[in-house]
């Protein structure tokens, strides 16, 4: 929660300083952002590879639980694709790129702003990446607030599915409280797999015409 607020604050700070015109104009073309992106992706990889629990988490678990993140991703993508019917400005690939953020707002919006430029042009790519940022923040906030309701109404898997990639960190405490402590492995596995799917799926959908 505190992390989410910091992220939003940094984003807002960037927006405001950009709008006030106190930043060098050279920042507007995203060249520096691209270099930082590589650094970020490398560190995300180190973080996944260096997790000492990696083997333990995946070693002794009901393999059927692997279906939960798949269901969460496919469910998200299926309904998000329908959004393109309501918002005629965006194609299916645009909508799927936003949906496959799975709550990982920072990474998905950064990837979209870099890689959707080819298909949409810089202006629309910036707009789509802002939509991705906000929608994935909304998704995380909703999960944090509504998990007890989701678990009661739709079963213990619902908060985990709704959390997407955040099931293993930000949303984990509230998931355990809502679904029960026995769902720790399910939540962490689902979070790790969704997390891993974000860079793969977002860049895949961005590469579509």
């Amino acid at each position: 929660m505190k992390g989410t607020l910091t992220v939003l604050a940094m984003f807002a700070l960037g927006c405001i300083s950009g709008a006030l015109g106190i930043l060098p104009q050279s920042l507007a073309d995203g060249g520096l952002a691209k270099i930082v992106l590589y650094l970020l992706m490398f560190l995300v990889g180190v973080n996944i590879g260096g997790n000492p629990e990696l083997k333990k988490i995946f070693g002794s678990v009901d393999p059927k639980l692997l279906l939960l993140p798949l269901a969460s991703v496919f469910g998200t993508l299926a309904v998000t694709a329908l959004v393109s019917l309501v918002l005629p400005g965006w194609g299916i690939a645009d909508c799927l790129a936003v949906g496959s953020g799975m709550g990982y707002y920072s990474l998905s919006s950064i990837l979209i702003s870099e890689y959707r430029q080819m298909a949409l042009g810089a202006q629309l790519a910036a707009e789509l990446s802002t939509i991705a940022l906000l929608s994935n923040v909304f998704r995380e906030l909703f999960t944090l607030v509504a998990s007890p309701f989701l678990a009661r109404k739709f079963g213990p898997f619902a908060p985990i599915a709704s959390a997407g990639a955040t099931a293993m960190d930000v949303s984990l405490p509230v998931i355990l409280r809502s679904s029960g402590d026995s769902f720790l492995a399910a939540a962490v596995i689902s979070g790790v797999i969704c997390d891993f799917s974000v860079p793969l799926l977002v860049s895949f959908f961005c590469s579509l015409p």
Binding site: F11, G14, G30, V36, S106
Partner: peptide
């Protein structure tokens, strides 16, 4: 990264 993204939007 998000500061830079925000700056681009701003």
């Amino acid at each position: 990264m998000l500061f830079l993204l925000g700056a681009e939007i701003g």
